[in-house]
Structure formats: structure tokens, C-alpha cells
């Protein structure tokens, strides 16, 4: 591996995508998991626990993917876009329940 082929910008973008994009994506996943499962009559803390457990495994997966994927722009798009989308749906579900 030669580091010379990696521009600093590209590396920072990868790290940002993995850490921040991953966080946004997992936030959305857990929020959607809690709201969605709660809507399906799963007790709140069960919904929360199962979403957290799967959420951390998901974080690991998308974090690794952020470094392995060919296009970093697509990583940003999928993680942030997906995160926002799931967060939005979660809020809609929540509003329909309360």
C-alpha cells in the first residue's frame, strides 16, 4: 500500500463518512426501530433494546463499508440520506401514535 495515492481530503472524507454518516444512519435505524416496533405493540424498552443491539452491529457494518466502497460520495449519500429518511419516518410514526 502506498499512502501517496491517498489525498488528505479523500481520507478525511472517508473517515467523516464512516463516523458521522454511520452515526446518522444508525440514529435513523434505532429511531425507526423504536417507533416501528412500538407501533406493532412491542413494549417500549424491548423495542429500544433490540434496536440498540442491532444498531451497533449495523454501525460496525456501515463503518467498514465506508472504507471498502469504491465511491465515497455514494457512501455519504446512502448513509446521510438513509439516516435522514429513517429519522423522518420514525417521527411520522411517533406523531401518529401520541
Amino acid at each position: 500500500m502506498s499512502t501517496s495515492t491517498l489525498s488528505a481530503r479523500h481520507v478525511i472524507s472517508r473517515i467523516g463518512a464512516g463516523v458521522l454518516g454511520g452515526y446518522a444512519f444508525v440514529w435513523g435505524f434505532i429511531a425507526l426501530g423504536i417507533a416501528g416496533l412500538y407501533a406493532l405493540d412491542v413494549p417500549f424498552h424491548d423495542a429500544e433494546a433490540v434496536s440498540n443491539i442491532l444498531g451497533f452491529l449495523l454501525f460496525l457494518t456501515v463503518f467498514l463499508w465506508a472504507f471498502a466502497a469504491r465511491s465515497v460520495n455514494r457512501v455519504w449519500l446512502v448513509l446521510v440520506g438513509g439516516g435522514l429518511l429513517m429519522t423522518g419516518i420514525a417521527t411520522l410514526i411517533e406523531q401518529s401514535l401520541v
Partner: peptide, 16 residues
């Protein structure tokens, strides 16, 4: 790390 039950989903949490 993901304080969702106390932020975004607070109303669901309180209802529960």
C-alpha cells in the same frame, strides 16, 4: 450514545 428515547422519541417514552 444514542439518547433517542429521551430526545426524538421522548413523547413515546413518556407515554410508555
Amino acid at each position: 450514545y444514542f439518547p433517542i428515547g429521551h430526545t426524538q422519541m421522548k413523547s413515546l417514552h413518556d407515554q410508555h
